[in-house]
Design a protein around this nucleic acid. Structure first.
Lengths: 163, 163
DNA sequence: TACATTTGCGTAAGTGCTTACGTAAATGGT
DNA sequence: ACCATTTACGTAAGCACTTACGCAAATGTA
């Protein structure tokens, strides 16, 4: 059994492979951070970079920018707050909102963190063999899914098989 | 805020995009199955197809074929057993092992399930615009990660930045 | 201005993977 | 034949996302 069955499956192996690949990045990144005593989690760098660029954002603005659900952001940000990387201030005009910013601690740590992320990017480039094809290909998938997702398309195609 | 920040991030957005894409497949597939009253979960089709091909396998053999950890298989298979799709028989020669097979119920349902999977594959082909580039590109990533994973490579690259 | 609707955020429960650890059965060396 | 090591499987805890639901604040409408 030395063949990778998911690869052998062709099209229908794609979704499993995406999950497997994504997880492999997440878990090795976690290990990487832990080895160096960094008290951050794998996906926090999205938030760091987002807040570095936009200064302050609300939960919904972040969810919108990252195309994630708002509870995903809430969970992420809560953990970052607990570690003291994110500050949260209630909006004066709209009391439902909280303006989120990078804390002083986050700004101080940022230059160091960026070294680790830079090394990660280099690793990524190696793995991608210095090419961006996969990024472009993913963008096509994302665009097509945006127009009609996997469920909708499956539904339509199902009619061909079940009259 | 109409730009997709993960895409705008370039290389460093890749891992987040893989996660997002993978999840989108998982959740829409779950919805798809639920809409049609199928009592199966998104990733069970890997097991169905694997056992269809190999008749009977142990947990470790499956983990090996799918390149997943053995607890992943145990969890999957336990749920499938609970729904009556998988039978488990203790190996006569090696009492640590269990030989897993598709149940009678699974074999009866298989032809119907395969229609739904076929429609899903067609959807996937649409999303991929009838091309296999992305599959080939993923295989390159998988191969390179197999040789040295993201953590190892990051570690090596880190030395360039931290003398 | 009163009231229904929308919006922002939060919590709960579910899914699926991982790593870490534990136990029992098989294997291997002397 | 014994004991240490390896292998197979299982369980527990953790992480990251989702959908579903709830509440309070803002908005829109008559």
């Amino acid at each position: 059994m030395d063949e990778d069955f998911l690869i052998a499956m062709g099209y229908s192996g794609l979704t499993g492979r995406l999950k497997r690949l994504s997880d492999s990045f997440i878990y090795t990144t976690k290990q990487y951070y832990r080895d160096h005593g960094l008290e951050i989690e794998p996906n926090w760098h999205m938030i760091f970079l987002l807040l570095k660029k936009h200064e302050k954002l609300t939960v919904m603005e972040m969810a919108d920018a990252l195309r994630l659900s708002h509870p995903a952001i809430v969970q992420l940000v809560n953990k970052m707050k607990k570690k003291g990387y994110v500050d949260s201030v209630r909006d004066k005009d709209d009391h439902r909102k909280f303006q989120l910013t990078l804390s002083r601690k986050a700004l101080e740590k940022l230059p160091e963190l960026e070294l680790y992320w830079e090394a990660g990017n280099d690793a990524l480039k190696e793995i991608m063999e210095q090419q961006t094809i996969i990024l472009d290909q993913l963008e096509i998938l994302e665009k097509n899914i945006g127009e009609a997702d996997f469920r909708e398309r499956s539904e339509r195609n199902l009619k061909k098989y079940m009259p």
